[in-house]
Amino acid sequence: MHIPDGFIAPQMYLPLYGAAAGLWAVGARRIARDLDETTLPWLAALTAAAFALSFIALPLPGGTSAHVTGVGLLAACFGIWQAFMALSLVFAIQALLFGDGGVTTLPLNALAMGFAGALAARGVFLSTRRVGQTPALFLAGWIGLFLPAVLIALALGAQPLIAANEAGTPRYFPFGWSVTLPALLIPHALLGLGEGALTVLGGRAIERLRERYRND
């Protein structure tokens, strides 16, 4: 979500930075343990792929398109911590080098998409894989897009509650949950179908590539 700076109150983004920082520390240690000396190049390559993924158009009916998030694909194929660290770096690069997104919305995106989204996608993928690879990848792609939208809608809708002036008028994002939830959840439930379809196809392609690497 490209929410510019200035809509999220510091009462929310500062604690979120604290929470994200803790998870980044854990993530860094987990990845370093799993990958040892290849950690840095691996993480850099995965970050680059996650960054570039957002430039792939998610095809929608009628010739239009939206952007791919790739949360489900990254989490299903590479695991929670790898997805979380790579996506966090993507948000940092977008905010600090290209001015996309924002620095005060960065921890919200990192926690909602990178952490909660990846966690849910990985969980759904692992628990439904017995049924079949295709439904597991599809659900991972769907939940990886939908759950972050729920969390971001909740965070945005909370702004009038946590930071209003004496008269009760909002100072940051102005709408409550009655507006943010339907406005974000309905389109994202549908976009999730496209993301799910692409996760199935992309996941299969990655699986075949890995087989090829194993055979070589």
């Binding site: 792929a49 993924l53 792939i56 791919v68 790739g70 694909l73 194929c77 392609a205 990655i206 590539l209």
Partner: peptide, 9 residues
């Protein structure tokens, strides 16, 4: 799109 994503990884 899937082919591009596969190539990317």
């Amino acid at each position: 799109a899937a082919r591009a994503a596969g190539w990317l990884f």
